[in-house]
């Protein structure tokens, strides 16, 4: 329990030490960490590699922006509607994608999210197409003005910590133990009395819900949503964060999200070609560091302390 608390305290102290630029960067990292952690539920704990998770981030963001800009609803009404709508969509997508496992599952999730991506470009009356939906204002909980970097960061941090805590509880629950069982030995799990399909479907919906939460935070941060947020590249960035950090660990997606965003941010100062760098990082990580950074460092640490003792 010590390490998570220390991380939260440090994260809470950050605005005292850093300027606005870094506070905003930290907000983005927290949002991206929630997104990556929701992918990790499927990939790391369920063994289900999804390449379509941007669908939930993007649809929740689009729903919020659409309801706010075109129907002029209030944020307190929009947020639950966007979350419920996106979660229902996750339920339907899960019915389709979980007809397969392994590569079939991956291709189905990819195809489903690409359909949404294409629709976001073409359904101009709803999405404003390539222009994206612009002009959303941040919510003002308890009348606090969230347009400043610092209050918004604390808003994101509170929700982000809650989200990751809820996901951590989920994977350490009895249900989480059965989920890991379905990843390792699905046949045995059926023989032990578990409905493997239902376990996966529930997890798929739960992961979709937290993906939607990250989408709400995402659209609050940017006040803007564009089809690119639904793209394969966005799903892939989330997946990369999970793999880079270490899938199937709690810290993995958080560390991975920080690595990917810092890299992206650093790179954008020097080069224009983020996608090419992203591609090279993908190849590099998969070929050279398939276990991820967190387990890799952990292993080195254990080896070091073992040689000391």
């Amino acid at each position: 329990m010590k390490t998570p608390l220390a991380v939260i305290v440090l994260a809470a102290l950050l605005p005292l030490l850093a300027g606005e630029y870094y506070i905003n960067l930290a907000s983005q990292i927290v949002i991206f960490a929630v997104f990556a952690a929701s992918i990790n539920l499927l990939l790391g704990y369920g063994g289900l590699a999804t390449l379509g998770h941007a669908a939930y981030l993007g649809v929740a963001a689009y729903l919020s922006a659409f309801l706010y800009l075109k129907l002029q609803l209030a944020h307190w009404a929009i947020a639950p509607l966007a979350l419920i709508g996106t979660t229902l969509m996750a339920g339907v997508f899960g019915l389709v994608a979980l007809r397969a496992t392994g590569l079939g599952f991956l291709m189905l999730t990819l195809a489903l999210s690409q359909v949404l991506w294409g629709t976001a470009y073409r359904w101009v009356s709803v999405t404003d197409g390539d222009n994206g939906l612009r002009g959303l204002a941040r919510p003002m909980p308890f009348g606090i003005n969230m347009n400043e970097a610092m209050p918004f960061y604390y808003f994101v941090l509170v929700i982000g910590v809650f989200a990751i805590w809820m996901m951590a509880r989920f994977v350490s629950s009895p249900f989480g133990a059965t989920l890991r069982g379905t990843r390792d030995q699905p046949r045995r799990m059926s023989a032990l009395g578990y409905d493997v399909w239902l376990i996966r479907w529930i997890t798929f919906i739960y992961a979709g819900f937290w993906g939607a939460v990250s989408g709400l935070l995402f659209v609050y941060y940017h006040k803007y949503i564009h089809p690119v947020s639904l793209s394969l590249a966005n799903s892939a960035e989330g997946l990369l964060a999970v793999i880079a950090g270490g899938s199937g660990t709690l810290a993995g997606p958080i560390v991975g999200a920080a690595i990917v965003l810092l890299l992206k941010n650093w790179a954008s100062a020097y080069i224009e070609r983020w996608n090419m760098l992203l591609g090279f990082v993908f190849v590099f990580i998969v070929v050279l560091m398939p276990e991820g950074v967190v387990p890799g460092v952990k292993r080195l640490w254990q080896r070091r302390s073992a040689s000391r003792g």
Binding site: M166, R169, S172, P174, F175, A177, T178, G193, Y206
Partner: peptide, 22 residues
């Protein structure tokens, strides 16, 4: 013990417990 506990859990309603502890 975790292997065998999974086997016990398979017949228990607690297998659906999503936020509790085993």
């Amino acid at each position: 013990e975790h292997n065998v506990a999974l086997s016990l859990l398979g017949l228990s309603r607690r297998r659906w417990s999503m936020f509790g502890r085993l």
